[in-house]
Design a binder for these strands. Structure first.
Length: 252
DNA sequence: GCCGAATGCCCAA
DNA sequence: TGGGCCTTCGGCG
Protein backbone atom coordinates (compact mmCIF):
# COMPACT_ATOMS: atom_id res chain seq x y z
CA UNK A 1 0.00 0.00 0.00
CA UNK A 2 2.12 2.64 -1.46
CA UNK A 3 2.75 6.31 -0.98
CA UNK A 4 5.61 8.13 -2.67
CA UNK A 5 8.30 6.85 -0.30
CA UNK A 6 7.56 3.24 -1.25
CA UNK A 7 7.55 4.01 -4.98
CA UNK A 8 10.94 5.75 -4.72
CA UNK A 9 12.23 2.85 -2.64
CA UNK A 10 11.15 0.42 -5.35
CA UNK A 11 12.86 2.53 -8.03
CA UNK A 12 16.13 2.32 -6.07
CA UNK A 13 15.71 -1.40 -5.45
CA UNK A 14 14.91 -2.20 -9.06
CA UNK A 15 17.74 -0.02 -10.34
CA UNK A 16 20.09 -2.02 -8.11
CA UNK A 17 18.65 -5.47 -8.91
CA UNK A 18 17.63 -5.13 -12.53
CA UNK A 19 19.22 -2.18 -14.33
CA UNK A 20 22.13 -2.96 -16.64
CA UNK A 21 20.91 -6.51 -17.16
CA UNK A 22 19.02 -8.31 -19.88
CA UNK A 23 15.66 -8.95 -18.24
CA UNK A 24 13.40 -11.92 -18.66
CA UNK A 25 9.89 -10.50 -18.64
CA UNK A 26 6.87 -12.75 -18.19
CA UNK A 27 3.19 -12.44 -17.33
CA UNK A 28 2.32 -15.51 -15.24
CA UNK A 29 -1.21 -14.29 -14.64
CA UNK A 30 -1.72 -13.94 -18.39
CA UNK A 31 -2.99 -10.38 -18.30
CA UNK A 32 -0.08 -8.79 -20.18
CA UNK A 33 1.25 -11.33 -22.69
CA UNK A 34 1.91 -8.76 -25.42
CA UNK A 35 3.73 -6.38 -23.07
CA UNK A 36 5.90 -9.23 -21.79
CA UNK A 37 6.71 -10.30 -25.35
CA UNK A 38 7.75 -6.77 -26.36
CA UNK A 39 10.05 -6.26 -23.35
CA UNK A 40 11.45 -9.75 -22.89
CA UNK A 41 15.23 -10.07 -23.33
CA UNK A 42 15.76 -6.29 -23.53
CA UNK A 43 18.33 -4.52 -21.37
CA UNK A 44 16.86 -2.35 -18.64
CA UNK A 45 18.71 0.97 -18.54
CA UNK A 46 17.18 2.79 -15.60
CA UNK A 47 14.20 3.12 -13.28
CA UNK A 48 12.65 6.40 -12.19
CA UNK A 49 9.96 7.32 -9.70
CA UNK A 50 7.83 10.44 -10.15
CA UNK A 51 5.30 10.85 -7.34
CA UNK A 52 3.53 7.49 -7.24
CA UNK A 53 4.45 6.54 -10.82
CA UNK A 54 7.26 4.22 -11.89
CA UNK A 55 8.95 4.41 -15.32
CA UNK A 56 11.35 1.76 -16.65
CA UNK A 57 13.67 2.76 -19.50
CA UNK A 58 14.88 0.03 -21.89
CA UNK A 59 17.30 -0.31 -24.73
CA UNK A 60 15.27 -0.40 -27.93
CA UNK A 61 11.85 -0.76 -26.30
CA UNK A 62 9.09 1.55 -25.05
CA UNK A 63 8.84 2.80 -21.49
CA UNK A 64 7.18 0.53 -18.95
CA UNK A 65 4.77 2.56 -16.82
CA UNK A 66 3.51 1.13 -13.54
CA UNK A 67 1.13 2.60 -10.99
CA UNK A 68 0.39 0.40 -8.00
CA UNK A 69 -2.91 2.01 -7.10
CA UNK A 70 -4.30 1.29 -3.65
CA UNK A 71 -3.42 -2.36 -3.26
CA UNK A 72 -0.66 -3.06 -5.76
CA UNK A 73 2.72 -4.33 -4.61
CA UNK A 74 6.06 -5.69 -5.72
CA UNK A 75 7.62 -8.75 -4.18
CA UNK A 76 11.37 -9.32 -4.35
CA UNK A 77 12.90 -12.76 -4.80
CA UNK A 78 16.67 -13.27 -4.82
CA UNK A 79 17.83 -15.51 -7.66
CA UNK A 80 16.74 -18.15 -8.31
CA UNK A 81 13.09 -17.10 -7.83
CA UNK A 82 10.36 -19.58 -6.97
CA UNK A 83 7.50 -20.38 -9.35
CA UNK A 84 5.39 -17.21 -9.40
CA UNK A 85 2.04 -17.13 -7.66
CA UNK A 86 -0.93 -17.19 -10.08
CA UNK A 87 -1.78 -13.56 -9.32
CA UNK A 88 1.59 -12.20 -10.50
CA UNK A 89 0.85 -9.74 -13.31
CA UNK A 90 4.43 -9.27 -14.34
CA UNK A 91 7.77 -10.76 -13.40
CA UNK A 92 10.99 -8.88 -14.14
CA UNK A 93 13.80 -11.38 -13.74
CA UNK A 94 17.52 -10.60 -13.74
CA UNK A 95 20.52 -12.75 -12.82
CA UNK A 96 20.40 -11.10 -9.38
CA UNK A 97 16.73 -11.06 -8.44
CA UNK A 98 13.14 -11.13 -9.61
CA UNK A 99 10.51 -8.44 -9.04
CA UNK A 100 6.93 -9.76 -9.02
CA UNK A 101 4.13 -7.27 -9.62
CA UNK A 102 0.73 -7.97 -8.05
CA UNK A 103 -2.51 -6.01 -8.02
CA UNK A 104 -1.34 -2.91 -9.86
CA UNK A 105 -3.85 -0.53 -11.42
CA UNK A 106 -1.60 0.38 -14.33
CA UNK A 107 0.97 -1.73 -16.17
CA UNK A 108 1.47 -0.48 -19.72
CA UNK A 109 3.94 0.48 -22.43
CA UNK A 110 4.31 4.15 -23.27
CA UNK A 111 6.06 6.30 -25.84
CA UNK A 112 8.07 9.35 -24.80
CA UNK A 113 5.22 11.86 -25.44
CA UNK A 114 2.74 9.89 -23.36
CA UNK A 115 5.25 9.59 -20.52
CA UNK A 116 5.91 13.32 -20.71
CA UNK A 117 2.17 14.04 -20.56
CA UNK A 118 1.97 12.17 -17.27
CA UNK A 119 4.94 14.09 -15.85
CA UNK A 120 3.45 17.39 -17.00
CA UNK A 121 0.23 16.92 -15.12
CA UNK A 122 1.98 16.01 -11.85
CA UNK A 123 2.82 18.68 -9.33
CA UNK A 124 6.35 18.83 -7.89
CA UNK A 125 7.39 15.53 -6.30
CA UNK A 126 8.27 16.05 -2.64
CA UNK A 127 11.06 13.49 -3.06
CA UNK A 128 12.63 15.06 -6.16
CA UNK A 129 16.01 16.77 -5.67
CA UNK A 130 15.00 19.66 -7.92
CA UNK A 131 11.39 19.96 -6.72
CA UNK A 132 10.14 23.54 -6.89
CA UNK A 133 7.79 24.32 -3.98
CA UNK A 134 6.74 27.57 -5.69
CA UNK A 135 4.92 25.53 -8.31
CA UNK A 136 2.95 23.79 -5.57
CA UNK A 137 2.25 27.13 -3.87
CA UNK A 138 0.92 28.57 -7.14
CA UNK A 139 -1.36 25.62 -7.76
CA UNK A 140 -2.45 25.42 -4.13
CA UNK A 141 -3.60 29.00 -3.76
CA UNK A 142 -5.34 29.21 -7.12
CA UNK A 143 -8.62 27.97 -5.67
CA UNK A 144 -10.08 27.74 -2.17
CA UNK A 145 -10.27 24.04 -1.36
CA UNK A 146 -9.80 22.26 1.97
CA UNK A 147 -6.09 21.77 2.51
CA UNK A 148 -6.76 18.11 3.30
CA UNK A 149 -8.18 17.60 -0.19
CA UNK A 150 -5.40 19.58 -1.86
CA UNK A 151 -2.62 17.52 -0.26
CA UNK A 152 -3.91 14.37 -1.95
CA UNK A 153 -4.25 16.10 -5.33
CA UNK A 154 -1.20 14.88 -7.26
CA UNK A 155 -1.53 17.81 -9.69
CA UNK A 156 -0.67 20.16 -6.81
CA UNK A 157 2.13 18.16 -5.24
CA UNK A 158 3.10 14.56 -5.90
CA UNK A 159 3.91 11.69 -3.56
CA UNK A 160 1.78 12.37 -0.48
CA UNK A 161 -0.93 9.80 0.33
CA UNK A 162 -3.52 9.35 3.05
CA UNK A 163 -1.17 8.49 5.93
CA UNK A 164 1.36 11.26 5.28
CA UNK A 165 -1.47 13.74 4.72
CA UNK A 166 -2.87 13.13 8.20
CA UNK A 167 0.55 13.09 9.83
CA UNK A 168 1.93 16.17 8.09
CA UNK A 169 -1.13 18.27 8.87
CA UNK A 170 -0.91 17.19 12.51
CA UNK A 171 2.77 18.08 12.81
CA UNK A 172 2.06 21.47 11.26
CA UNK A 173 -0.96 22.06 13.54
CA UNK A 174 -3.18 22.68 10.53
CA UNK A 175 -6.76 21.44 10.44
CA UNK A 176 -7.59 19.46 7.27
CA UNK A 177 -10.69 21.54 6.63
CA UNK A 178 -8.78 24.86 6.48
CA UNK A 179 -9.07 26.53 3.10
CA UNK A 180 -5.93 26.56 1.00
CA UNK A 181 -6.36 30.28 0.50
CA UNK A 182 -6.12 30.90 4.25
CA UNK A 183 -2.56 29.56 4.43
CA UNK A 184 0.25 32.03 4.90
CA UNK A 185 3.39 31.50 2.85
CA UNK A 186 5.20 30.67 6.07
CA UNK A 187 2.64 27.99 6.94
CA UNK A 188 2.94 26.60 3.44
CA UNK A 189 6.72 26.42 3.65
CA UNK A 190 6.41 24.37 6.82
CA UNK A 191 3.72 22.22 5.20
CA UNK A 192 6.03 21.57 2.24
CA UNK A 193 9.11 20.79 4.30
CA UNK A 194 7.27 18.40 6.61
CA UNK A 195 6.28 15.76 4.00
CA UNK A 196 9.67 16.24 2.32
CA UNK A 197 11.37 15.13 5.53
CA UNK A 198 8.75 12.49 6.35
CA UNK A 199 8.96 10.78 2.95
CA UNK A 200 12.77 10.94 2.92
CA UNK A 201 12.74 9.15 6.25
CA UNK A 202 10.16 6.73 4.82
CA UNK A 203 12.51 5.80 1.97
CA UNK A 204 15.37 5.21 4.43
CA UNK A 205 13.25 3.19 6.88
CA UNK A 206 11.20 1.47 4.16
CA UNK A 207 8.13 2.21 6.25
CA UNK A 208 6.11 5.12 7.57
CA UNK A 209 7.24 6.35 10.97
CA UNK A 210 6.38 9.96 11.62
CA UNK A 211 6.58 10.34 15.38
CA UNK A 212 9.66 12.18 16.60
CA UNK A 213 12.04 9.71 18.34
CA UNK A 214 11.77 11.72 21.56
CA UNK A 215 8.03 10.95 21.56
CA UNK A 216 8.24 7.21 20.85
CA UNK A 217 7.49 5.65 17.50
CA UNK A 218 4.61 5.03 15.13
CA UNK A 219 2.02 7.58 14.02
CA UNK A 220 0.46 10.68 15.57
CA UNK A 221 -3.15 10.52 14.35
CA UNK A 222 -3.63 8.19 11.38
CA UNK A 223 -5.91 5.38 12.65
CA UNK A 224 -5.05 6.37 16.20
CA UNK A 225 -7.77 6.46 18.88
CA UNK A 226 -6.10 9.18 20.95
CA UNK A 227 -3.86 12.11 20.19
CA UNK A 228 -0.42 11.30 21.52
CA UNK A 229 0.28 14.97 22.24
CA UNK A 230 -2.81 15.98 24.26
CA UNK A 231 -4.46 12.62 24.93
CA UNK A 232 -7.81 13.78 23.51
CA UNK A 233 -9.78 11.75 20.97
CA UNK A 234 -8.68 11.70 17.35
CA UNK A 235 -11.59 12.53 15.07
CA UNK A 236 -12.09 10.47 11.92
CA UNK A 237 -14.37 11.49 9.09
CA UNK A 238 -14.80 11.17 5.35
CA UNK A 239 -13.16 13.98 3.44
CA UNK A 240 -14.16 13.52 -0.15
CA UNK A 241 -13.35 9.90 -0.96
CA UNK A 242 -10.88 9.23 1.81
CA UNK A 243 -10.89 9.02 5.56
CA UNK A 244 -9.16 11.82 7.40
CA UNK A 245 -7.86 11.83 10.95
CA UNK A 246 -7.18 14.90 13.06
CA UNK A 247 -6.95 16.16 16.61
CA UNK A 248 -9.42 19.02 17.00
CA UNK A 249 -7.40 20.41 19.91
CA UNK A 250 -3.92 20.38 18.36
CA UNK A 251 -4.97 21.35 14.83
CA UNK A 252 -6.79 24.55 13.89
C1' DG B 1 -17.42 -18.78 3.11
C1' DC B 2 -18.69 -13.67 2.74
C1' DC B 3 -17.93 -8.82 3.45
C1' DG B 4 -15.43 -4.83 4.08
C1' DA B 5 -11.46 -2.25 4.18
C1' DA B 6 -6.80 -0.82 2.59
C1' DT B 7 -0.92 4.00 2.15
C1' DG B 8 -5.10 5.24 -5.28
C1' DC B 9 -7.15 6.81 -9.10
C1' DC B 10 -10.25 6.92 -13.32
C1' DC B 11 -14.54 7.34 -15.64
C1' DA B 12 -19.47 8.08 -16.79
C1' DA B 13 -23.51 10.59 -15.59
C1' DT C 1 -21.21 11.93 -6.94
C1' DG C 2 -21.13 7.09 -7.33
C1' DG C 3 -19.24 2.96 -8.99
C1' DG C 4 -15.48 0.28 -10.70
C1' DC C 5 -10.90 -1.89 -10.64
C1' DC C 6 -6.75 -4.42 -8.75
C1' DT C 7 -5.62 -8.31 -4.37
C1' DT C 8 -5.06 -9.68 0.31
C1' DC C 9 -6.38 -10.13 4.92
C1' DG C 10 -9.01 -10.06 9.06
C1' DG C 11 -13.47 -10.24 11.35
C1' DC C 12 -17.62 -12.43 11.58
C1' DG C 13 -20.75 -16.27 10.93
Amino acid sequence: MPEGHEIHGLALEHARDLAGHRIHVSSPQGRHPELARVLDAHVLQSVQAHGKHLFYTWQDAPYLHIHLGLIGSFERHPAPPPTPRPSVQLRLNSPKAAADLVGATTCELLGAPERQAILDRLGPDVLAQDADPDRAWQRLTRRATPIGVALLDQRILAGVGNVYRAEALFVCGIHPARATTSLSRKEFDHLWQTPVRMLQKGVADRRIMTVHPSEGDGLYVYKQPYCRRCGGPVRMWQMGVRRTYACETCQS
